[in-house]
Design a binder for these strands. Structure first.
Lengths: 115, 115
DNA sequence: ATAACGCGTAAGGTAACACTTACGTGTTTT
DNA sequence: AAAACACGTAAGTGTTACCTTACGCGTTAT
């Protein structure tokens, strides 16, 4: 099947076991069987997860002898980081505004009631 | 249904339309119908998405009159940011090591062949 | 050459997901 | 008091996701 079928990194990292697969690859180059040995799923399952991670541009592959060495690729993570940063600044800005509004509300309330 | 059924933020933001829902909330407090009006899904669908976002601690609710005002909550995003930062440093460290190794390989190769 | 290894992919089954419509509850308006 | 509004949730449906076993292909070892 195609590796050029784009998959957005959110979908790619949505699966818990796929995150564990990626974490192994991110910690250093490793083969499919090597990963499968450390997880409670079959080797084909790992292989399928790695394909999704490839499509999300989160990992790369190269051959070494008869095994496929997977290694991390920054692109997908970077895209994720950018989107997340957008959400983060939006959130902080909104919360700041809300805090200022509630402050104004309390001071205005005490103005009207203190004298 | 329970709101205390934990949902990890990865799962929460895995859905495209749920991300759009969250983006609206992050940009400023808004009601359910208000969000549904800007999306190609029904109001109950938005309501269900908001419940998931609540369980992932990505949003908060408070009442205002007869509407529910949703606003962003930093907790879920923060957790996401931390995990993502771990992946990021793991990735960079691995790539740096690989770069150094391939450099050593080339210099060693030229040492053996130049004289 | 033959055996063993490492891998990808096809086929299939079960569970989860993202929607929809229908309905009931609380709050505001008239 | 009745009508209108905003919402949550139940029930049902079609699609997708994740996993398994079975198989075939290339590469290394004996």
């Amino acid at each position: 099947m195609e590796v050029f079928t784009a998959v957005d990194p959110w979908t790619a990292l949505a699966s818990e076991t796929r995150r564990r697969v990626f974490s192994h690859v991110a910690s250093g180059p490793c083969s499919v069987t090597e990963i499968a040995r450390q997880l409670p799923v079959s080797r084909p399952a790992v292989s399928q997860h790695l394909r999704v991670l490839l499509q999300a541009e989160l990992v790369d592959v190269r051959r070494r002898g008869r095994e496929q060495l997977y290694q991390p690729r920054p692109d997908g993570l970077n895209q994720l980081r950018q989107e997340l940063e957008t959400y983060w600044t939006q959130t902080l800005t909104t919360l700041k505004t809300l805090a200022e509004q509630s402050y104004q509300a309390t001071t205005q309330a005490s103005e009207g009631t203190s004298p």
